[in-house]
Design a protein around this nucleic acid. Structure first.
Lengths: 219, 219
DNA sequence: ATAGTTGTAGAACAGGCGTTCTCTATGTCC
DNA sequence: GGACATAGAGAACGCCTGTTCTACAACTAT
């Protein structure tokens, strides 16, 4: 007769407490707890109890342990989801005002510049990403609102159809448009299909960067 | 005579190597490296060299160290930024189609539903947040594009001026508009000021949720 | 009752790991 | 040259920490 195997992923009170403690410790300290940290944090009586239950937590997939390594406890869901990238907001884009070009040495972690937290799904592994805050309503034809954050990649050239931040030399104006090279001239197509495109001579447009995302906070 | 103090935040090659190694180690292993890990990873000759440069890295704000704690190295920018919340994408919003109401028990971490990673700055600590994927171009008057992710809070009532997802009973249509109660009728104002508002009797509109953010991925 | 499983206790071991002390080499400023 | 700050090398100390071994109680199946 076959036996019914309880294949539970439920946790005992003690294991739940340990998971909570590990998560909290990580959040508060920035590094994993040792077994003895867990012992005192969860009022356990012995390191062997902690080890015993940690083995169970690992078997159930709640944690990952690394043998013979002090504090070798990692949380898979923090590991798999890439950490959010802090992206610098290096300036403001608005009609009639220039965009400061990102100085690659200035906007690292230590710089005091404002940053926004960006989901990795928007970054796709690229590191040369910066952000601009949109001022004014001049971008509504690109479905971009006052106060939005636009995510940019610093590129020198773009493909046809890419949304890009372009600087119009003569007009001294920056705008976000879809870019199409058409021989000697450039067609700048608003994202909103109801709007008409702008045409400009190629030497009048300067690519500032390619738009890879928009983040809008409301209320 | 006063001395000119070089207050540099620049790193030597060795320190840059160590930062890169620490970051990579963390990403790969899920826990911090020990000093001796860094020694071998960066081909240093002694633990004292690692310690010496780690002290500098801490003084410059690149890392945080915790005394007498093994692997007590944490990265401030990973610590300060709250971990991104995984928000469930519970459905699609498009003209002429209903929005499924979020079932609070279904969309926790264990549910297999699609989720998006959302910066905490958009959530502001709220937990009753879900997301909808926008299908079609019917929302362009709200500056929302096909494929965008709209972040919603599950509320039963909204204040005047809030952007909300509203369900129009008679028209059997969902749309995103600014909401204004005007006596027995409701004015639904597109976010785009160039567009005209819609008026509807109050009993014909049903609040599905309040929009708190928009995320758009491009290219 | 006996054997097996699960959960808990306590202690000891051995290597991991941060710290620190001494020594050396290289510049810089006067 | 001499004083001083910076940077690195090597080794030793001693606590930290994961692991493991033994023992014990409670429960279950046969």
């Amino acid at each position: 007769m076959s036996r019914i195997v309880r294949r539970t992923v439920e946790l005992s009170d003690r294991q739940r407490c340990m998971m909570d403690y590990i998560t909290a410790f990580w959040r508060d300290c920035g590094y994993p707890p040792s077994i003895r940290d867990i012992v005192s944090g969860c009022s356990l009586s012995s390191t062997s109890v902690a080890d015993y239950n940690l083995k169970i937590l690992e078997r159930k997939g709640y944690i990952r342990r690394h043998r013979e390594v002090s504090r070798g406890i990692s949380l898979p869901h923090l590991l798999s989801a890439d950490h959010p990238r802090q992206v610098p907001v290096i300036g403001v884009i608005a009609a009639g005002q220039p965009i400061p070009v990102p100085d690659s040495d200035l906007w690292d972690a230590t710089s005091g510049a404002e940053t926004v937290e960006v989901p990795d799904s928007l970054m796709k592994g690229h590191s040369d990403v910066y952000a601009l805050r949109v001022k004014g309503n001049s971008m509504t034809d690109a479905l971009i609102n006052d106060g939005d954050i636009v995510l940019m990649r610093h590129v020198n050239s773009v493909d046809n159809g890419d949304m890009a931040a372009v600087w119009l030399r003569d007009e001294k104006e920056a705008t976000l448009k879809k870019f199409y090279a058409e021989g000697a001239r450039v067609r700048l197509q608003p994202a909103n299909s109801a709007m008409q495109p702008i045409y400009a001579p190629a030497e009048n447009v300067e690519i500032q960067g390619r738009v890879i995302g928009v983040i809008r906070r409301i209320g």
